[in-house]
Design a protein around this nucleic acid. Structure first.
Length: 497
RNA sequence: GGUCCGAUGGCCGAGUGGCUAGGCUCAGCUCUGCAAAAGCUGCUACAGCGGUUCGAAUCCGCUUCGGACCUCCA
């Protein structure tokens, strides 16, 4: 087995930072709760998917073979205060006068577009709940067989108290069953349940319900928590390595997932490392659809939203989010976005200069220790994916690159190669940042580049002749077009802003 | 009401007992025809009060303020 650098993960279940040891290295199984496709994703959703995109990327970077499963929830999600609420997708379908599956397709497409714009890697498998109705029915039967569920009026409920006699309900979220009971609000339409804590595995559909399937109990639809239990274990096994999701899913969703898995097999600890990403906040408040403080990636890029002073590029947002640790709340503000934009610009300018970096030295510069830089990077990521620390190390590398570029420091070819490999690996592969200079589009890029080179050369001649008027005129004109010129003692270069 | 979490310099944001990240902003300097870029230097903070310790942003207690979950939520 290959050697992997140590990776510590903060496990939500044990509340400890643990050394990551996959069940079957080099293979890793990872499941992340995906979106419910009944409306556009907002920036808060993006943050969670970004968190696990980086986890996925880093595991791949280390050389693990990862099966990354992220579901699409296209049924079973109830609205309102009780389990008798309406299915979100069915409701939306009625509102928009579309087939439920049209809704699902529409917002799935939107979700994929967003993922692409933010340079998220596609999961290995993206299963949908409606594609696994049979398996969900089978899991309900297994849970019934073990006595942890009961049928009531065509619906099936999980028996939380019975389960808690043999296992520990509340272990993940740190809740005690009696506290839960004391604090459960009395809701309507719960008479079918033996106990308010019980949750639905299968719901009987009424006549107006659009999405329903036959089952041994009724024509109905599966409970929300069930799909994740079914799809994670189907593709990753009854026990698998990493389960991720947003902090707000910890209870009840993930708690119920654990109960279902254990209830169906009798085996505890189906998930070895639970990871939870924290919330994106706006003015200190969680960004959420219900709060009305969310905006879509489209609004973010265009700047067309009351909270936005102007638009920001997807990579700026990606970088902004990576400058905070995934387990902390991150507060959104225009000021912070603008600071991130400049920082990213500096990082990317430096990346762009790597190729043309001079190797002025025949021997390695003893003051330049690429191995140490590399070690600090892997240490940062190995400490629970600490991207802020990683970025701080990368800025040290930026400083070094810029010093070499301006010939304040000399390095040899080997050091240049290592530096390039390090920066490419962490910036492009691990953090998933990309250069965003291709905004002018079209196939004429090469031509316009050549024209720009020519203009810069002409300006250089003007400078040599001390024709400052011409030189400044060219610089100002290019600046107005979004091209900035950088002078150094060896000549000038240009860069698109 | 219950459970849990947080409070870090002008802003964002790491850091869990001594080595006092990083980005942005601001000021000065170097370079430059000027500017930009780049480099260097400076601004040295940990909500408040008490305690433990040789030593606390970091551990403990209290107070204040904020947030999350307990209902759909990434």
């Amino acid at each position: 087995m290959a050697e992997f650098p140590p990776l510590y993960i903060q496990n939500s279940l044990t509340r400890k930072k643990e050394l990551f040891t996959p069940l079957n290295a080099p293979y890793v199984g990872m499941y992340v709760c995906g979106p419910t496709v009944y409306s556009n994703v907002h920036l808060g959703n993006v943050r969670t998917f970004l968190t696990f995109d980086v986890v996925y990327r880093y595991l791949l970077f280390l050389g693990y073979e990862v099966r990354y499963v992220r579901n699409i929830t296209d049924v079973g999600h109830l609205t309102g205060d009780s389990d008798d609420g309406e299915d979100k997708i069915g409701k939306k379908a009625r509102l928009e006068n579309l087939e439920p599956m049209e809704i699902v397709q529409k917002y799935t497409n939107d979700f994929h577009d967003v993922m692409r714009v933010f340079n998220m890697k596609s999961p290995s498998i993206e299963p949908s709940a409606t594609g696994h109705i049979v398996e969900q029915i089978q899991m309900i039967e297994a849970i019934l067989d073990r006595g942890y569920a009961y049928e009531s009026n065509g619906s099936v409920y999980f028996n939380v108290r019975k389960y808690n006699e043999d296992h520990d309900y509340g272990a993940l979220s740190g809740r005690k069953i009696d506290d839960l009971l004391n604090n459960t609000r009395s809701l309507d339409g719960q008479d079918e349940k033996n106990d308010p804590l019980d949750f639905a595995l299968w719901k009987k559909a009424d006549a107006s319900h659009l999405m329903k399937w036959p089952s041994p109990w009724s024509d109905g639809f599966p409970g929300w928590h069930l799909e994740c239990s079914v799809m994670s274990t189907k593709y990753l096994g009854n026990q698998f390595d990493i389960h991720g999701g947003g902090m707000d899913l910890k209870f009840p969703h993930h708690e119920c997932e654990i109960a279902q898995n254990t209830g169906a097999t009798g085996e505890a600890h189906s998930v070895r490392y639970w990871m939870h990403g924290n919330m994106l906040t706006v003015n200190g408040r969680k960004m959420a659809k219900s709060e009305g403080n969310g905006f879509t990636p489209e609004e973010l890029i265009s700047g067309n939203h009351a909270l936005l002073e102007r638009g920001y590029s997807p990579m700026t947002v990606r970088f902004f989010m990576l400058q905070g640790h995934y387990a902390s709340t991150l507060d959104f503000s225009n000021e912070a976005l603008q600071a991130a934009e400049k920082g990213l610009d500096r990082l990317m300018s430096s990346m762009a200069s790597l190729e043309g970096l001079p190797t002025a030295s025949d021997a390695p510069n003893p003051d330049v220790d690429t191995d140490a830089l590399s070690a600090r990077c892997s240490e940062a990521m190995g400490d629970d994916f600490n991207t802020p620390i990683l970025i701080s190390v990368l800025f040290d590398a930026v400083k070094l690159v810029n010093s070499v570029a301006s010939e304040r420091i000399a390095i040899d070819a080997t050091q240049k190669e290592r530096l390039t490999k390090l920066l490419h690996g962490y910036v492009f592969d691990v953090l998933g940042l990309t250069q965003e200079n291709d905004a002018d589009g079209g196939g004429s890029e090469g031509e316009s580049d050549a024209l720009l080179d020519l203009l810069v050369e002409l300006r250089g001649n003007a400078k040599t002749n001390k024709d400052w008027g011409t030189a400044d005129a060219i610089r100002n004109a290019l600046s107005a077009l979004g091209i900035s010129i950088k002078d150094s003692k060896d000549g000038s270069t240009w860069e698109r802003d």
